[in-house]
Nucleic acid binder design. Structure first.
Lengths: 225, 225
DNA sequence: CGTTCGTCACGAACAGTGTACGTCACGGAC
DNA sequence: GTCCGTGACGTACACTGTTCGTGACGAACG
């Protein structure tokens, strides 16, 4: 062994190309935001960094790994709450709303998050925070754990739905209403009759409504017990 | 115009190759079940039908259209309920369970269903049936409509989760438990403390629990109103 | 019966994709 | 001044989805 620290690379400051995992992920996220998930290809990301596709494989283990890294970075940007038992319900809505927004801001990430549920540090901290708020609200641990799971489902579902709606701007409600209302009432009596209710509310309204429903259900079951 | 009906094809029974949309979708679903979604490529499906990839484009508008057709076919196989107000809650569980199973039986279809929410006849009939059961349970139309949406989220989420768990058989609970329990308790006090609760219950148990929670929440809100 | 014609399936080709390998230049260490 | 490891690059491969032109088959018409 050499007495001097030799673990450091011989080239601490690559004078020419400042390539790094962060740079790769940044470039990929930029392309994701501006051109969508399908445009995030290895060659495209490499071109944005003025290099070749092969160079990315040093910092990222393939496209799959790149997507995971992007997903992790996105989750890491979500601001957490410091649990306060007197405002726990509002805090829950705030946290979930920020999760929702972070996913919506990066179209396609929500779908990726479903495909491989994240167990990275950022995701675990988020889970920790979510649990803390629910426990501060008085839920018993088992209910809190399962509730956290349900909320994760609702957030990602809402985010994916928002992604889709942005993709084809057409069916922004009116289109969907006319589709429902214009169906043959013989075969679809309820869908046609309640078309207005089916398309009622914005995505955010439905999202927060769902959160409250789950919470009330949890509390009702706890009270009954 | 010719007096005789000329709209019919000159070749009603292609004696040699019995190719059709159904045949294509059948072959694709078979590959999906046995080898997963990624193996469903145009060439692979065509090879199973002993033909070339180009031939598929007559019956299916590209890969996207093929996936839509597969998704529609899958939904169409779900058996519906004839609503009975005295057993509506059990009927809801049964219907959602069948939806869940149908999606799980075809890995990847759930993810596709999220990407483009289906508005085909089969999907609408399912929506109609779901609404009928909820209305039979006494929910008012607006609550029923939004509840249907939440249930759709839960079903697809659970299905995707099941797909993932099957893909990497490793983390079947024990692995996940050890991951949670083995974290540094300083940074993750709640996750480590309640690791058992976080991984408790099978997928089915959590699924049906979530359904009941949402229902109870709906009923509690309705009663309070 | 011979010809024509429409329909369908096929082979080949194109533009991309993710990924692996061999090579080259650079900058610090001896 | 020489050496050598490190990181970036160009190329190549095996794929992908999709399109186009060709060819053959069977039925309809004269």
């Amino acid at each position: 062994m050499n007495p001097t620290s030799r673990h450091r690379s011989t080239r601490d400051r690559p004078a020419k190309a400042p390539l790094s995992q962060d740079a790769v992920v940044d470039a990929a996220l930029a392309i994701l935001k501006s051109e969508g998930l399908e445009a995030v290809t290895m060659r495209r990301v490499a071109a944005a960094l003025d290099t070749g596709a092969a160079s990315l494989y040093v910092y990222v283990s393939g496209r799959e790994g790149l997507l995971r890294a992007m997903q992790d970075r996105t989750i890491a940007t979500i601001e957490l709450e410091t649990p306060d038992p007197s405002r726990w319900r509002a805090q829950l809505h705030s946290l979930l709303e920020r999760m929702h927004r972070a996913l919506v801001a990066h179209p396609g990430i929500a779908a990726t998050a479903m495909a491989n549920p994240p167990t990275t540090e950022a995701a675990l901290l988020l889970q920790e925070n979510l649990l803390a708020i629910l426990l501060a609200g008085g839920l018993d641990p088992q209910d809190a754990a399962w509730a956290a799971d349900i909320f994760a489902a609702l957030v990602t579902y809402a985010a994916i739905e928002a992604d889709v709606r942005r993709a084809d701007r057409q069916e922004l409600g009116d289109e969907l209403y006319e589709l429902f209302a214009g169906l043959p009432p013989g075969r679809f009596p309820l869908v046609t009759a309640h078309a207005a209710q089916l398309v009622a509310g914005s995505g955010d309204e439905r999202f927060h409504f769902a959160i409250d429903v789950v919470l009330d259900g949890m509390l009702a079951r706890a009270a009954r017990r």
